[in-house]
Amino acid sequence: MPDSPVTNCEQALIQLKNFGYAFDEAGILRKIDPATGEPGTEQFSYNVSDDGNENEKHYQNLANQIPEIVYALLEKNGLSRTYIPLHKDPQRSSFIYSQPAKLSQSKKLLVLIHGSGLVKAGQWARSLIINNSLDHGSQLPYVRQAQKLGYDLLITNTNDCSRFYNGKENIIEGVETPLKHTKYVWKNIVLPSKPESVAIVAHSYGGCLTLDLVEHFLDFFKESVFAIAFTDSVMGSPQSKYRDYLCNVTCDWVASNTPLDTPISQSKNSIRRVSAGHTKHEWTSYSAIDSIFKFIEEKYEQRTNKK
């Protein structure tokens, strides 16, 4: 029988191995022990040369393998890929992840929106995946906790806006920017699925994307979105037409040197801010996860008690 084709994830793992690294069973990136060919005890080291440019090139080449590995882990955890825009050539399309594969009348739906830059679906922070572990920097802990609590899931992929073909990078029309991506997903995936109750967790620039959704789909948000958890989000002041709603359902866990959930000073008529329990921006989603799910569940209980 012919060998099975190598998957993108397997190719990424091979590339990692070529760089001298592999993830151990705990999801920590380790240097491969030459004696065993298995992950050893040493973790990732940025400095591989006296040349700073060479170090950065090495880091980026290694980091480029992370998306496919995380995609495979999302699929291993039961999520399915949907290509967008719908009904287009998958090779020239972006995609999102969801569970179930086709969302339909979810009793509880959790939407995860990452930040800007080079992160893709399933990631909060590449640097944490590389320097700490998959659980620290990926959305997998959120996936597992949401599944445990009975949520359907939708994971956005807002930075995946182009494909290389015909010798050049081409934008994916319809989802060519993070703003257009989130609006497309909301209009074509979320709204038609008619979810009963929706919660959102959004990191960094994901906060700006969420506010854009609120502005464009305000009636739906007021009716169905019962909790919005931001982690050190980038956003302006909410507009007066939806300020009261937003302040009622939203909390932002921000980088701070104070203990988790300590209230942080805020201006009048603004979204509640509390400490994420960590001083670094990229750590906030990982650090605040227990508090965030407690907040979401409390908001859901309030919603069900109103009915």
Rank of each mutant, 00 (worst) to 15 (best):
S193K: 11
K102D: 10
A125N: 10
V201D: 04
H181F: 15
V214P: 02
L191C: 09
L154W: 06
G167E: 12
I96C: 08
S193W: 09
S104V: 03
T158G: 09
V111D: 01
S106A: 10
T182Y: 01
K107W: 00
F95H: 11
T182N: 14
H181W: 11
F164R: 11
N132C: 10
W124E: 02
N157H: 07
L128C: 02
G122V: 02
L211N: 15
L112F: 09
K180M: 07
E173L: 14
H136Y: 15
H136A: 15
S106W: 06
N166L: 14
P195E: 00
L140E: 02
L179D: 15
N166P: 00
G137M: 07
L118H: 12
L154R: 11
L209M: 09
K168Y: 15
F95M: 07
L110W: 05
K194L: 05
K187V: 07
L209H: 01
K102H: 12
S193A: 13
C208H: 14
S162D: 14
E169H: 07
T182E: 10
P100T: 07
Y165W: 15
H203W: 01
F95C: 11
V185M: 03
V111P: 04
P100D: 07
Y151Q: 05
C161K: 12
V185W: 03
Q105W: 05
S204L: 04
R126G: 00
L154F: 10
L112T: 13
I189Q: 06
Y97M: 08
S104P: 01
C161V: 15
L140K: 08
N131Q: 14
V214N: 04
I155S: 09
Y151K: 02
L109C: 06
N159I: 05
K108N: 12
K120H: 10
T210R: 00
L218M: 10
S197Y: 09
Q99P: 03
I130E: 01
A199Y: 01
D135V: 08
A199M: 07
Y205R: 08
L218C: 14
V198E: 04
P141Y: 14
G115I: 04
L209G: 02
F95L: 09
L211E: 15
A199P: 04
K180R: 14
A202E: 01
T156I: 01
L109W: 09
L211M: 13
S98Y: 06
V175L: 02
C208T: 14
T177S: 13
K194T: 00
E173W: 13
D152S: 14
Q139V: 01
N157E: 02
K148P: 01
H114E: 09
S98E: 00
S133D: 08
K187P: 05
Y142I: 09
F164T: 12
A202T: 05
